[in-house]
Structure formats: structure tokens, C-alpha cells
Amino acid sequence: MATKRIIDDDRLTAVGLLVEVHRGLTNKFATRLAHHGLSENELEILLRLGRTPNCQLRMSDLAAQTSLTTSGVTRVVDRLERGGLVNRASCDTDRRGTWAVLTDAGLERVTAAVAEHIEDVDRWYTGLLTPEQLSALVEALRIVRDTVRPEAVAGVAEAARARPRIAATSP
């Protein structure tokens, strides 16, 4: 009987499949996002702001939640701010802190992009699974995410407590 080689370990297969799926989905999603004038990073920031209480997060929390560096988040928010999709506001509790606040125009843009993006998500990802498989996958991914990236929800509770600093409108 042949011994199983360590390089054939199912744990390596699981990690490899996750990486391959991420790369494949990123490629599948890119075209439609470009149609809306958004990069993957811009969509992620707009979604994170839009799905957070008061549609605002501190810049440092955005960096912690994403795969971007602090300077990377600053560059993306700069572009979004120039486009009227995000505003910056000072943080009452931390003079060094700055909020990124989704504008009405930003919410409209991300909503329009997501309306089509969700079709791609369903076509290439969630629609391939049964409801039970999807539920189990989401639960499993949360367990892993909460262990390896607990900062992925950084600042959400603070954003819920903070009063909005500026109106979420476009200039």
C-alpha cells in the first residue's frame, strides 16, 4: 500500500482551491466593475462604507478591514473623494483620526454596480451551490476569517455609536 505524500495533503488542496477561486472570481468580476468605472479596491471600500452604520468608517479601520495598506486606502479614498463618492470628516474621539463617509452619489454608484455585480456573483459563485452548501460555506469562511483576520470588522461598533459628522451628500 502506497503512503500518502505530504504534498498531497487535503489541507494544501483546500488552501490551493481557495486561492484559485479568488483569482478566478476576481477575473470574472473585473469586466463588469470596469463598466461602472470601479476597481475591485474601490468597490470594496464603497461596499464596506455602505454596509456600515452611518455609512462611515475611520480611515485606519478601512485599512484594517481591507487588504490595502494605510497609504493604499488613502490613495483609493482620494480617488473616490475626487469623484464625489466619499467625503472625509474629522473624528470627535481621536483628533488624529479621519472618517471616510459615503456620499449619496457614492451610495447610488455602488448600488448600481452591485445590482449587476450580484448577477456575476450568482452566476460564478453562489448560484453553483445549494442553499445548504452556501450556508455552510459562509459559516466556515466566517470561522476562518475571524481567526486569521479579526480586524476585518474593525471600527464597525464605533461607527454605529458615532454621530455622522457631515451630510452624506455630494459636493
Rank of each mutant, 00 (worst) to 15 (best):
A34C: 00
T74W: 00
S90R: 06
E116N: 01
I7F: 15
C55G: 04
S90V: 08
L49A: 03
P53A: 13
A63N: 08
A105L: 11
R58I: 04
V73M: 06
R58G: 09
T111C: 01
S71V: 11
V21W: 09
V21Q: 11
C91P: 01
Q56M: 14
E42F: 00
R11L: 15
S90P: 02
L17K: 12
P53T: 03
G24H: 11
T66L: 05
H22K: 11
G37Q: 07
E116I: 03
D94M: 04
D104H: 11
N27M: 04
V110W: 06
V19E: 12
A105V: 02
A34R: 12
T98P: 01
R88M: 02
L47M: 10
A34M: 09
R96H: 13
L102W: 06
E42P: 03
T52A: 09
F29S: 07
R82H: 08
A115W: 00
R5L: 15
W99S: 04
G37V: 06
R75L: 10
E42Q: 14
K4T: 15
L43C: 01
T98E: 08
L12V: 09
G16A: 15
T70P: 01
A100V: 01
I6H: 12
A89Y: 08
K4R: 15
L57G: 04
E44V: 05
C91K: 02
L49R: 06
C91T: 08
H35I: 01
A89S: 10
I7M: 10
T66C: 09
L18E: 11
W99D: 04
L57W: 02
D94Y: 04
L12A: 09
L107G: 09
D61H: 12
R75M: 05
G106H: 00
T111I: 05
Q56P: 03
T26A: 15
D104N: 11
E42G: 07
I6Y: 12
G37D: 02
E108D: 14
D61R: 03
R32T: 13
S67R: 09
D9G: 07
R58P: 04
L18V: 09
N87A: 13
R82D: 08
S60Q: 12
R32M: 12
S67M: 07
R79A: 14
A112C: 02
L17H: 13
E81W: 00
G16F: 11
A112R: 10
G24R: 03
A105S: 13
G16C: 01
K4Y: 12
C91S: 12
R95L: 15
R109I: 00
G83A: 15
A64Y: 03
V77M: 02
N41Q: 14
A30G: 01
V15Q: 10
T93P: 00
E40M: 03
R51D: 08
L107S: 10
G72Y: 06
N54H: 11
V73H: 02
H117Y: 10
V19R: 10
E119L: 11
V110K: 03
A64I: 00
L12H: 14
A30T: 15
L57M: 07
M59T: 13
L57R: 06
R96M: 13
K4L: 15
L12R: 14
L17T: 07
R109L: 04
G84A: 08
E42M: 09
H36M: 04
R32E: 15
L80W: 02
E119A: 08
